[in-house]
């Protein structure tokens, strides 16, 4: 099994006490990995550390065998991502936004921008400035930007935010097709597991800055139990565990 992404003992502590602690997991080629947890669990922080926007206090991240601190360019060569809100240069058109990104990948064919806009359903609006876009349209542009370079690893942070039902279905289909046909690996975070439960094959559950469960959906969830139910039960057990620890400490 080819390891695409390795996260090794990542810790990042903020002054306000938040952050992520001792996170370790890896993702193999072809996985659709769902990073799941409530708001504020540290998902975005973790993803930002993975793609180098935040420097961790400890630990390291390796993508396709390249350490992101020392070999950033090589590590990111085959990564496409959309982090936090799907922002774009508001004063540029959708097409021009992608044109900027495309310059980093000289080997891409010229038609690639149009193709990817078509794929996310933005082709009719490609000449329009982004400042007139709705949140859903920006989200789609963000996805297009992540997929533009034909990456082998795609990292998406809350990608379904602002998408309507049709958009969510399209999104799921696109992801599934890319994973099956092209063998693209996905790391997708969400606090709304329902949208992802149909497509993920591995999950990591985060709570309070820690990864409380990591594994294949088949391994973790017993037959007959829905993924949502499993996740909710895990979050609860973990919280009770915390309470127990707390009580012990007081005694």
């Amino acid at each position: 099994m080819d390891i695409v992404l390795e996260v090794n003992a990542i810790t990042k502590q903020y002054k306000n006490g938040r952050g992520v602690r001792d996170i370790r997991f890896d993702i193999a080629k072809g996985d659709i990995f769902g990073l799941i947890g409530p708001n504020g669990a540290g998902k975005t922080t973790l993803l930002k550390i993975i793609i180098g926007l935040i420097r961790p206090d400890h630990g390291s991240v390796t993508i396709f065998g390249n350490n992101t601190t020392d070999q950033f360019e090589q590590a990111m060569q085959q990564v496409g991502c959309m982090i936090e809100t799907a922002d774009a240069y508001e004063y540029l058109s959708a097409y021009d936004n992608l044109k900027l990104s495309a310059r980093f990948y000289p080997e891409l064919p010229k038609t690639r921008i149009d193709d990817v806009l078509e794929q996310v359903g933005l082709a009719p609006y490609k000449k329009e400035r982004v400042n007139g876009f709705s949140l859903g349209m920006k989200q789609r542009l963000g996805l297009a930007s992540a997929l533009l370079s034909k990456p082998k690893l795609v990292i998406l942070d809350e990608p379904t935010n602002g998408l309507d039902i049709e958009g969510i279905v399209n999104f799921r289909n696109t992801i599934q097709q890319l994973a099956r046909v092209h063998g693209i690996t996905f790391l997708i975070s969400s606090h709304m597991i329902t949208e992802l439960s149909l497509i993920v094959n591995r999950i990591g559950i985060m709570q309070n800055g820690q990864m409380i469960r990591v594994g294949g959906v088949d391994e973790l969830v017993k037959p007959g139990i829905r993924l949502e139910q499993y996740i909710v039960s895990q979050l609860h057990t973990s919280m009770e565990g915390d309470h127990d620890d707390h009580r012990k400490y007081i005694k």
Binding site: G59, T69, Q210, G216
Partner: peptide
């Protein structure tokens, strides 16, 4: 607290710490 479902990766993790202690060669 952490249940590791993947393979044990103490090797990798110690390597991670070493790298970080050095700060990374190119970073330095």
């Amino acid at each position: 607290m952490i249940e590791s479902f993947g393979k044990p990766d103490s090797e990798v993790c110690s390597q991670g710490f070493t790298l970080n202690n050095l700060g990374g060669l190119s970073m330095k």
